[in-house]
Simulated assay, not measured.
Amino acid sequence: MSASFFTSSGSVVVSNKRSAALAEFALVCARRCIKEHEHTLFVSKFESESSSIFPGYDFDLEELFSTREERQFWSDVFATLAFDLDAGTLGNQEDRTWAPSAASDARRISGLLAAAALRPCG
Rank of each mutant, 00 (worst) to 15 (best):
A21V: 12
S8V: 15
S4N: 12
T97G: 15
P120I: 06
N16H: 01
K45Q: 12
N16V: 03
R107H: 15
A115H: 11
L90Q: 03
A87Y: 06
L81W: 03
E70D: 06
S104F: 06
G56S: 13
T80C: 10
G10T: 09
V28R: 06
F73H: 11
A102C: 14
C121Q: 13
A82P: 06
S101P: 06
S11I: 02
A103F: 07
K17Q: 14
E47H: 01
E24K: 13
F65G: 03
F5D: 00
V77C: 02
F83C: 13
L112T: 03
W74Y: 06
A102G: 09
R96S: 13
A21P: 02
C121V: 11
A102E: 12
D95H: 07
P120T: 08
L113S: 01
P120D: 12
A21I: 10
V14R: 04
G56L: 05
A21M: 04
V12E: 07
D84W: 13
A114P: 01
C29F: 06
T67E: 02
S110P: 10
G91M: 13
D76G: 13
F65K: 05
K45I: 00
C29Q: 13
R68T: 03
N92E: 14
A30M: 00
S51H: 01
A116K: 07
L64H: 03
G111M: 08
S110A: 15
G122E: 01
L27R: 07
D58V: 09
E62F: 09
D105M: 12
A21N: 04
C29R: 12
G10M: 05
S44W: 00
D84H: 14
K17S: 12
A82K: 10
F54L: 00
S66N: 11
R107F: 09
S15H: 05
V28P: 06
A26D: 00
A117R: 04
T7K: 08
A21K: 00
A82G: 12
S8Q: 15
V12R: 10
F59H: 13
L118H: 05
F78N: 15
I53Q: 02
L61S: 10
V14H: 03
S44Q: 09
F6G: 07
D95V: 11
F5Q: 03
K35E: 13
R71L: 12
D105N: 15
E69I: 08
S9V: 08
P55G: 14
H39V: 03
G88R: 06
F42L: 00
R108E: 14
H37W: 04
A21T: 14
E24Q: 05
G88Y: 03
A102W: 04
A3E: 08
F6Y: 15
L113F: 09
W98G: 15
E24C: 02
V13D: 11
V43Y: 08
E36N: 06
C29V: 13
S52N: 01
E94G: 11
F6D: 10
